[in-house]
Amino acid sequence: MNLVTATGIVFARQVRPELRSPLGLVLTMMEPLVFLVFFGPLLAGLPGVGAGSPWQWFVPGILVMLALFGASGAGYTMITELATGSFERMMVTPLNRAAIMIGHTMKHILILLAQAALIVLVVMPFGFRLHPAGVAAGLLLLVTLGVGLGSLSLALAIAARRQPALFWSVQQFALFPLLLLSGVLLPMENAPSWLAVAAQFNPLRYVVEATRSLFAGDLLHPSVPPGLLAAAAIAALGVVLGTLAMRRASL
């Protein structure tokens, strides 16, 4: 059985309960709209947002935020699987270990892509200019980021399997500095210098910048390579740590 088939089996298993009771899915889809409606209007005319529609600046950031929130929670489903024994049952089948990991993360990636499509559709009438090639490249970048964050989240879930509450503590502890120092919500150009320096150490900062350039259709912008590099590094780190955690999970 190849890796794609195996990943598909795990992914299909994870998605089926969501489709059976879609209320959770619907609420997750609505979540970004809350930010667009209640936060987006505050950005108009703010320095650093750019001359054009504030949506052009805000939408890529929102998508990075969704990737961060969605994928970093991927470990949650793993926590319950670890506690009940269904994780163990999967581990005794010949299924590829990496496939188990990626299959779990894929659910969150797919939700992210659906959210992105919904957001773009909603903001199009309000001055958002769609650059198809740029958006496609930007989404690819987000998928890379999501795979990395999702795998890190699964590794964390396995590491914290004996005290599940620790999973949420660590996840939240990491989440907010990453978010606030990424320039997703407000332009980092307005930050005092020490904060701007701190943000330089946040890999997400580069992903956000690159996603903005790509969504603006500027595929060759100098911010793109650092963003690609940051996303690829997170993905590599996540897959390595996740696979190690799976292999060493002496349950």
Partner: peptide
Amino acid sequence: GQGHGAGEQFV
């Protein structure tokens, strides 16, 4: 195993 192989919310 000692635990339950089937996930709670799975058919």
